[in-house]
Amino acid sequence: MWQRLRERPELARVAFDEAVRWQSSVQTFFRTATTDVDIAGTRISAGGKILMFLGSANRDPDRWADPDRFDLTRDPSGHVGFGMGIHQCVGQHVARLEAEALLTALASRVGQLALAGEPRRHLNNTPRSWSALPVRVLPAD
């Protein structure tokens, strides 16, 4: 991936959005129906709770071809890793700019990131994160 980013730095933004789609940092959240509503043939009464699975939506095979594959050739726009509609993350544009700057800078210096130990997930039902992710950075040639 690093070589591709060196050759095509515009892929940094695609790589970030594909990573957010592929491994959504927020996996689930609840919403409360404000009125009676039918969703896919199921009635949700006003005041009823709706649990949304963003991680699942971002892997929906009806929306994404080969959804379990990390693919820098796909257009990852339309993922819901930053929410959607009025519930969008207001900082998503800053996050994209920061990630693009970071990935572009790393691509000029890094040849490979390699695991240097056993990764451990931080167990939580909502945010997806790591309690440990030891990596070794190998320089670019």
Rank of each mutant, 00 (worst) to 15 (best):
L113D: 15
Q27F: 01
R120L: 15
A95W: 08
S56N: 14
R8I: 00
F16G: 06
D60M: 08
A101Y: 04
G83D: 01
G83T: 01
G78L: 07
P61F: 10
L54Q: 06
H79T: 02
F82W: 15
V14M: 03
E10V: 03
A57R: 02
S56T: 12
M84T: 14
L102K: 04
P61I: 15
R43P: 01
L123N: 12
A114N: 08
L102P: 04
R13I: 03
P76E: 02
V26S: 03
D62H: 14
G117V: 07
P67E: 08
L72E: 09
A107P: 05
M1S: 14
G55V: 00
G48K: 05
T104Y: 06
A46R: 07
S56V: 14
R4M: 05
L106F: 01
E7W: 00
E118N: 00
H122F: 14
V14R: 09
F29Q: 02
A132Y: 10
A15D: 03
T28G: 00
V137T: 08
S77E: 09
S24V: 00
P67A: 10
V135I: 11
R96E: 07
V37M: 00
T73V: 02
Q92H: 14
V94W: 12
H87A: 13
S25N: 09
D17L: 15
R74Y: 02
R121W: 02
R109A: 04
F16H: 08
R6I: 09
Q88V: 14
L11M: 01
M84V: 15
P67D: 08
V90D: 09
A140L: 08
E100R: 15
L103D: 04
S131D: 08
G85V: 07
A99Y: 03
A12T: 04
N125T: 00
R31C: 06
T104P: 05
W64L: 09
R6S: 09
G81R: 10
N125H: 07
A57Y: 08
L11K: 05
T126L: 10
R121D: 00
P119S: 14
L72W: 07
T32R: 11
V80K: 06
D75Y: 07
A65D: 15
P139Y: 04
G91C: 04
M52R: 03
P9C: 10
A57W: 02
L102R: 03
P76D: 06
P119V: 06
R43K: 14
R96K: 13
R4F: 04
V14G: 12
Q112P: 03
L133C: 13
P134V: 09
Q27A: 12
G41S: 09
N124L: 08
W130V: 12
D36Q: 01
L113K: 12
V135G: 02
A65W: 04
E118W: 00
L5I: 06
G85I: 00
D38I: 11
L123K: 01
G55H: 06
I44L: 13
G83I: 02
S45D: 13
L11C: 10
A99G: 04
S45V: 14
H79I: 07
T104H: 05
P127Y: 12
P61M: 05
A116Q: 08
A33R: 07
A105Q: 07
A95K: 08
D71L: 06
E7F: 01
F30Q: 06
V20G: 10
L51P: 02
W22P: 09
D62V: 09
H93E: 11
L5S: 07
